[in-house]
Every structure is written in structure tokens, then in C-alpha cells.
Amino acid sequence: MKKPTIVMQSDFGIDSGLVACMHGMCRLVDSELETHDITHLIPAFDIEAASYCLQYTVPFWPDGTVFVSVVDPGVGTSRKASVAKLKNGSYVVTPDNGTLTYLKKRIGVEEIREINEEINRYPLTKDVHTFHGRDLFAYCAARLASGVISFEEVGPAYPVEEIVCHELKCAKISEGLVETEIKSYDPFGSAELTVENKEFQEAGFRIGDKVRMVLLDGEEQILDTVIPYEKSFGYVEKGEDVIFNDLASYVTIAANEAYFMKKYKLDPEKTYQVRLIKE
């Protein structure tokens, strides 16, 4: 029987041997284990970005996959090191610091256990407290995936209700009107909003509709224009704006073959309000 795959992400970057150490740790536990990466370019210390990335990645790996997510500003402190069993059968090995926020909402956590470091921490680096990605999370994930330990042997269970979660910003929705914010930008400069695809449709918006978009920076209006709600970028001319359903479950505004963020000189450190009105 094939052993579960281990899939990793972190904010370690790709210009050092840190990631290789995590892969190597898994092979030390079991040379047959298969390991893959999501990304190691999560912005440094950005726990919410790690959580957001997991929620659209996890559903597209087989049930039983063991995910390792290490964005851990509190490494070596009293924050819990955990393994969550998701309701789809996969596992996430991670600091319980908010990383599980989106997964808890989107997929659901069936059970969570705190890693027993007396058993499931690599013993040869016991005096190192700043590389739990290698010495604790990768090591424990490998023991779980290889069958050395069962989920119950990870450590003691604690209530799912105690999982640390960030507050998720929600959109205000009414018939033909959505008041939302720009949550983040994807690698192409498209603006990901805080309104979910399904919520947008519940407000009465349909593919092919024209949508009035008002973009605000506090009280200052930056943009007031009408753009189409379409399936994808190619339904508008190059450089033109379009609204579409994003792969991460949130409505997104983009400029076809252009960077929406740069086009309107938006500051990624600012929070912009967006009103979407059905024409």
C-alpha cells in the first residue's frame, strides 16, 4: 500500500538549504516517503497568507495527504505545535497560530492533537529551538506518513474550538449590492476581494452582468467605472478590467494581460473598500 505523500510550505525562501533539510528529515525517517512543495515563498511571518494558500491547495491533493506548513514567528515559545485531522481525511502539521483558519472554515477540522515533543521530535537536535520546521514538524509528519505512529500517537487531543483562528473579514451583501474590501493581490496583480464566489451569486450577480465598481481609499474615491463579470480574462480586450470567480473561492478583479494593482497605483499595504453594484 502506497504511503501518504508529504506536501510542504513555508516562509523559508529558496536561497538556502532550509527546505532541503526538511525534505532530508523525511527521508531519514523513511527513505520511501514522497515529498513535494507548495511554496516556500510565503511572505515572512505572514500566517494569514499561509492559511489562505492551504485552503485552495489542500482540496486538490488526495485524502490522507500530510501537509506541513511552517510560518512560525513564535518558534520555540509556548504556542502549540499541532497535527490537525481535516474532515476530508488529510492532515496538517503546523504551529497552531492561525494557520488553520481557512481550512477550519472551508473543510473543517475533525480532530486536533498537540505534538508530544518527548516522542515526536528529532532527538539529535534537542538543543536547537529555532528550526521546528525540520526538527518537529517535518519529523512528526514523516513518522505519521510512514506509519511509525498513528494519529492518536501524535500527542494529546484538545478541543477543536480552541484552535487559534484569525478573524476573517466578511462582505456586506444585499440584492444587487456587495460592499467588500481588497484582501490581497495574486502574482499577476489582480485584486482578491473578501466576498466569496457563492456570496456574489447569492446577491444576484450572474456571468455576463455589467457591474458598477466603486473603489475607495477611506473617503477618497479612486475609481467609479462599469466592468463585466465574466468567466475569465479573455472576455475583455487587453488592458481592460474584468471581475471573475477566483480559484481560491473569492471574487477577483483583474486587468487582462496587465496588473490591476499597478494600473491604478494601489498600495499593497493599504486596505481599499470596493462597492459592486449590479447595473
Rank of each mutant, 00 (worst) to 15 (best):
G64V: 07
M213L: 14
V251M: 12
K262G: 01
F151L: 02
V92H: 12
A49P: 00
M8Q: 12
G74L: 07
E240A: 15
T39M: 05
Y235A: 05
K3D: 10
G89T: 06
M8T: 09
N245L: 00
G98M: 05
L124S: 14
V71P: 10
I207Y: 11
E230D: 12
V148E: 15
E152N: 09
K80N: 12
K80W: 08
A20K: 02
K172M: 13
F188T: 07
I115T: 10
V160S: 02
T101E: 13
D267N: 15
L103S: 08
T99K: 01
A49E: 14
E153I: 00
N256M: 10
F205L: 04
A248F: 00
K80P: 08
E118P: 03
A254G: 14
Y158S: 06
W61C: 11
A138Y: 01
A49Q: 11
F131M: 07
G74Q: 06
L100S: 08
P268Q: 05
Y272R: 10
I163S: 06
Q273F: 04
V109P: 05
F67A: 06
L247D: 01
V214Q: 14
M261Q: 15
T271S: 14
A141S: 07
Y229H: 01
L193E: 14
T77Y: 02
Q201M: 01
P187L: 01
V214G: 03
P59A: 10
Q221R: 15
Y229G: 07
D127I: 04
E117F: 00
K262C: 03
M22G: 04
T194F: 06
A142W: 01
K87S: 12
Q201E: 15
V251A: 03
P62C: 10
S90C: 14
L177G: 02
D217G: 03
